[in-house]
Every structure is written in C-alpha cells, then in structure tokens.
Design a protein around this nucleic acid. Structure first.
Lengths: 136, 136
DNA sequence: TCTTGACTTGGACTGTGTCCATCGTAGGAT
DNA sequence: ATCCTACGATGGACACAGTCCAAGTCAAGA
C-alpha cells in the first residue's frame, strides 16, 4: 500500500502517522471493515487515534476513489480497498459477512438508455444476498 | 392496497388502524419512503401513531416480503411497496432520489457457481448510481 | 528554525433505529 | 352484546453510526 501513500502525496496530502496507519490497516484484498473496525485496528498501533480522524480519512479516501464504500441494509458502512479492481459483493443476510465476487457481463450495459431517465450514470453496484455456509 | 390488507388478514394479522394507515401510505408505484417519511404521512391521518409502531410494521411487512428494503450508503433505509414486481434502482449520488428501473438480463444468472462460495443465493440487487438531471 | 495552515482531537450533537414496561384493543368466546 | 385476553401500540430511554466544532498540534515549505 505504499503505492497508495505515494499517490496521496502526489495529490498534495500531508502525510501524518494517523493517515499512514489507516492506509496500512486497509491493506490487502478481501478486506471489508467497518469504520469502527478500522479504528480498533488503527488504535492497536497508534492508541490515541480518534474516531473523527478515522472517519475523516476514510471519507477522503473514498472521495478520491482509492477505496469503495459498500452499501448495506441497516448496518454500518464497510470500506473496500480493492477499488481499482472491479468486482461485486456477496453478502450473508444473517451475519453480514462480505465476499468479493466477479459476475460475468457488465451490469452498466444492461440498462437501456430509455431506462436512464436523464441520469449521468457512474456506477452499477451488484449485491448478491443469501446465507453463507456457516449460517445456512 | 386492500389486496395487501386482505393477504395480511389471511396470515393471521390483527388489523389495527395503525397498520391500515401504514399500508395506505405505502400504496402506489415508485414510492420509496424512509421510515420517518412514512411516519410523517401516517401521522397526518392518525396523529398519535408512534415511531415504534411504524418501525415495527415496516419490519414485519419486509419480513413477509410485502415490501422491500432498499439499501443505501449512509442514508436511512427506504421502503419499496413494489416488491412483487422485480426491478432495480437508480439512485442519485447527490440528493438520494430513487427511481425504479428494469435492466435487461438476469443478474442472478451472471454469478457462476464457482463464485458462489457455498452461499444459498436468494437475491441479486443492482443499484445504478449517478447524478439525476436536477443535480447534474 | 520558523511559520502557517492543514490535520487531529475528544466531546457534544444528530439521525436512525431498537428495546421495554405499560396500556389499549381486535376479535374470538360466551 | 359483553367479556377476555393475547397481541399490538405507546413513548421514552437507550444504542449505534456518523458529523461537527473549537482548540491544540505538527508536517513541510520558506
């Protein structure tokens, strides 16, 4: 994830220990942490980091497109650092576990212009729901 | 929506003025209200209805499959009474407006078995995001 | 090394939703 | 028609997710 830190520097970000730690926590594939989980893991390395800073940093990273916010129904947002590799999510309806999946086809192409109602489309998010093997 | 009230009766629901009003508020197509909006509209007809009752009733209707919960990112859940007619949603990233859309193809069929990881799939929800004509 | 404005902090605050003890009432029983 | 009672409604306290703000801190350019 030093790539990320490098890119952020290039965008004029001031590098702080807090931001570095948040970026490190989000390193890796198949990571789908809530903001509070990010805060807990960051606090292991930097005990005095505040929730506000974690929220700020996650929000900025999402606005820059470096991480993706995963939508949920009635749960806390999850943050996905795998934003540069298009994929979708498979969510357990009971326990909320998230897995990355790669469906065939391009959902954006499946929406005919007549169904776009003048919107400027930016994204098609597909969420598969079901019960994971543990909950079934 | 007397169909709905009828079906609920058949399922052993006790009919109360509160439940009737909530069901009436949710009548119609292309309705995507938050729980508080449902409460506000219900309160116009039945001023003393409580938030808890609205939440309970919406939760029960959703559990019965009579209405669908629409997932959001960082906003209040919205409830869609059009649950018996499969469709997807187009959401404005700025103002949160929701429109029903009907993409071609079947997203559930786009997930190969090797990508299902032992989950028992029940649903594929597609959310198109972009800016609506007013916000663009 | 100095300076400065961007960043961090923690606590208060808001919005969304849940829980619970108590009261009320729909609808079956008589 | 009236009574009973279990199911539903109430509202206030509570919990969780997230935001805001004033004050203090510090990264990095001069």
């Amino acid at each position: 994830m030093s790539d990320l830190l490098h890119r952020l520097r290039g965008r004029g970000w001031r590098m702080t220990s807090q931001r570095r730690v948040v970026a490190e926590v989000l390193d890796g594939d198949h990571v789908h942490l809530t903001a509070d989980e990010v805060h807990a893991r960051a606090a292991e390395r930097l005990p005095e980091i505040s929730r506000a800073t974690v929220y700020n940093t996650l929000g900025e990273l999402a606005a820059l497109g470096e991480i993706a916010e995963v939508s949920t129904i009635g749960r806390a947002k999850r943050y996905d650092p795998n934003a540069h590799h298009p994929h979708q999510h498979l969510v357990c309806s009971r326990c909320g576990t998230v897995r990355d999946v790669h469906p065939t086809g391009d959902p954006l192409a499946d929406l005919p212009p007549a169904e776009q109602f003048g919107f400027t489309l930016t994204e098609a998010e597909v969420t598969y729901r079901g019960l994971c093997p543990d909950c079934a």
